[in-house]
Design a protein around this nucleic acid. Structure first.
Lengths: 200, 200
DNA sequence: ACCTGAACACCGTTCAAGT
DNA sequence: ACCTGAACACCGTTCAAGT
């Protein structure tokens, strides 16, 4: 249809990202191979280089997509819970953990060192944008007098660390000892502990 | 000297683990190659197979070493703070985060999916042993009436998630915005928030 | 412009030998 | 027992062509 479809694809870039994610869902990250991604997208093993500088650039693109997806989910919860700052915090945190469970490959890539080594400005920007939504949530709760009015930055770091730890450990299946266990109660209780304290 | 040193090494297994860790300190995990490890240990590229079934087994051995080191550090803090359960929690958590900062390669490997995929019984056992020390710390604090007496398992999960998130994000350099920033105050404050609450 | 195929240096792993 | 070297199928990446 499209004149861009003269060759195999209209949007090979997107197809390659999807193929990469699809491979990561089935196998270990060490199994993800640029050549296999190309095969999965029915394209020669050199075609990806038209869209990505190297293998790392493809991985970074997947990570960027992850931050975008996570950002969307968080935004939804922010808007859906404007009236209740406590519920807003709960649902934003639940969305973060849920994202990790539903997109483990993305989460792994998002925090696998590609960030700190600063391989891509686009990745750093995407990360920063998404994480600022967490800060925004904390600020909103402070404005509504839900949280103590001191040290908002530190509070955001504590909440982020808590929810990030929950997401990482959940993703690895290390927090759900029983088989039918759900993640929501553990997350809710952890947030509750963080807000109300667990000291006697 | 030793009759075992007839060939190149008295303890090639240990030398290979050290070589692997050394490579991981300098470069990305994707750069770690069984052949390079062998080269680093001044040994042919096939020698490692006498000690490890495959590349994954070497990585698992490094992860096991990580759990052992972390376990030692936590044990030290448990014993050094027997008299004050609150200080015990603080110092155990600080030790966890400090471990991640000092041994980022180990931490990455320890929670990189080798666990849940259950590649090695030895690894699972090492992880379980180390993590039981965290539970032990929480139980001790409960016995001393520092923590609420309900739901000790959930409390342990919350504390573990918090400290694990701190360690992972610290390791990635995502929590220390300023250059000269120290990790201790952030960890102490986060633990304080978790114990005392951050609700107004 | 976008895709392909041959080529190069490298990898993990197997196999058959060497001491 | 422990180590080595050749060999195989695979990788990431470069280069020179094809349409």
């Amino acid at each position: 249809m499209d004149s861009k479809t003269k060759y195999h694809h209209g949007d090979l870039r997107k197809a390659l990202i999807e193929a990469g994610v699809s491979l990561l869902q089935e196998e270990d990250a060490s199994e993800l191979t640029l050549r296999r991604v190309a095969r999965e997208a029915k394209v020669s093993h050199m075609a990806p280089y038209r869209h990505f500088a190297d293998k790392n650039a493809l991985l970074a693109a997947i990570a960027v997509e992850g931050f975008q997806i996570l950002g969307e989910q968080i935004k939804e919860e922010i808007h859906a819970n404007r009236s209740d700052p406590r519920q807003m915090i709960d649902h934003v945190c639940l969305a973060y953990v849920k994202f990790g469970i539903e997109h483990p490959a993305h989460l792994t890539l998002m925090f696998s060192g590609l960030l700190s080594t600063g391989s891509s400005d686009e990745l750093n920007l995407a990360a920063q944008k998404t994480l600022s939504l967490l800060k925004q949530t904390v600020k909103h709760a402070q404005k509504e007098n839900l949280l103590k009015s001191v040290d908002g930055t530190q509070m955001a770091k504590s909440i982020w660390s808590m929810v990030h730890g929950l997401a990482m450990l959940m993703k690895e299946g290390l927090l759900l000892s029983e088989d039918g266990a759900q993640f929501e109660p553990i997350v809710r209780q952890s947030i509750d502990h963080l807000l109300n304290g667990i000291k006697s």
